[in-house]
């Protein structure tokens, strides 16, 4: 799988795809899953990131999500903001079809 985190980056959030429809979802502070990136919990440092990954691994076992991974974020106020273009697009939808994906709803 592609690398989504940079060694030097401090803050991460965790994303996965929902099993039923493949929708990108984000792990929230109450161990739930949200379709909205800004709902994602922010891990400060490696250890907190690993804890999020443990929760996600269980969610994979429980048939909620697939393909979980951590990605780099900046902290904007108390909300995560994705750094890579990939995660920005994933959080919104195709940049060439603004009528599709999360941005459409």
């Amino acid at each position: 799988m592609a690398q989504h985190i940079n060694k030097k980056a401090r803050f991460h959030s965790l994303t996965a795809n929902r099993l039923l429809d493949g929708e990108p979802v984000y792990l929230t502070g109450d161990n739930g899953w949200s379709e909205v990136l800004t709902d994602a919990v922010i891990a400060d440092g490696k250890d907190e990131g690993a804890k999020l990954m443990d929760i996600a691994t269980q969610a994979v076992k429980d048939q909620h999500v697939v393909n979980p991974y951590l990605f780099d974020v900046d902290v904007d106020g108390d909300k995560p903001k994705p750094i890579s273009v990939r995660e920005q697009i994933r959080a919104t939808g195709p940049t060439v079809r603004l009528d599709l994906g999360k941005q459409a709803s």
């Binding site: 795809n17 697009i89 994933r90 939808g93």
Partner: peptide, 9 residues
């Protein structure tokens, strides 16, 4: 033929 892509299957 079923892949998982960025936004969906």
């Amino acid at each position: 033929g079923l892949y998982l892509q960025l936004h969906a299957y």
